[in-house]
């Protein structure tokens, strides 16, 4: 554990909490892509199946459980509790165009052709593009509430901080994972346009 990794995890946790609080406090999920949230739930489910097979640390297990619970909690709020506020009409990104290539790629490029390893690889690939329906929705409506912008900024920062963590680990521990690094860079690059607007305009869309 190094400072970049810790800040990355905190940023990730913060993003999830911001989103849950926004929906809970406003009793509305307007402006949030349910499709991105479903993709994130698939990502965490596929990746954290190792909760049953390997133990790393209490921190690791607890964070995994928190991410899973928060993700399914968000889906419950969006699709059941505050369903009426869900903005169907603007959430139209075809997620099969993300899922199918990720399935194929994870079958072709992985560290080991075993079920858990392929699911882990699939989750890494899918996570890198899971935000696209949300970014598409923001660009389609041409605006995002400031709280949604803070959510996106925290969520984008998380993988950017992980890149610093991977650079640190490469030099300090000679540890690296090509799949995670390449997908993490792709994921961060997708946020660049948003980062630019967030920093220069303060609030995206205004």
């Amino acid at each position: 554990m190094n400072v970049f990794r810790l800040l990355g995890d905190i940023s990730h946790l913060l993003a999830i909490i911001i989103l849950l609080l926004k929906i809970w406090k406003t009793r509305s999920c307007a402006g949030i892509s349910g499709r991105s949230q479903v993709l994130f739930a698939v990502v965490y489910t596929a990746r954290y199946l190792d909760l049953f097979t390997s133990y790393i640390s209490a921190y690791n297990s607890i964070m995994k459980l928190v991410f899973l619970a928060a993700s399914y909690g968000t889906i419950y709020l969006m699709f059941i509790k505050f369903k009426a506020s869900y903005d169907h009409n603007h959430d139209t990104f075809r997620i099969e165009f993300l899922i199918l290539p990720c399935v194929l790629l994870s079958l072709l490029i992985n560290h080991e052709f075993s079920p858990l390893e392929i699911l882990w690889t699939f989750s890494i690939y899918l996570e890198s593009v899971a935000i696209l329906p949300q970014l598409f929705m923001v660009s389609k409506t041409g605006e995002a509430e400031s709280i949604t912008s803070h959510y996106l900024f925290a969520l984008g920062s998380y993988r950017a901080l992980y890149i610093l963590n991977w650079i640190y680990r490469y030099y300090a521990e000679s540890h690296y994972d090509v799949i995670a690094i390449v997908a993490g860079i792709v994921q961060t690059v997708l946020y660049c346009d948003f980062f630019y607007l967030y920093i220069t305009k303060g609030i995206y869309g205004q």
């Binding site: 990794r5 882990w120 799949i179 995670a180």
Partner: peptide, 10 residues
């Protein structure tokens, strides 16, 4: 791609 990840990250 020979290096198997340790999966200690989230």
């Amino acid at each position: 791609l020979n290096m198997k990840s340790e999966k200690d990250e989230l």
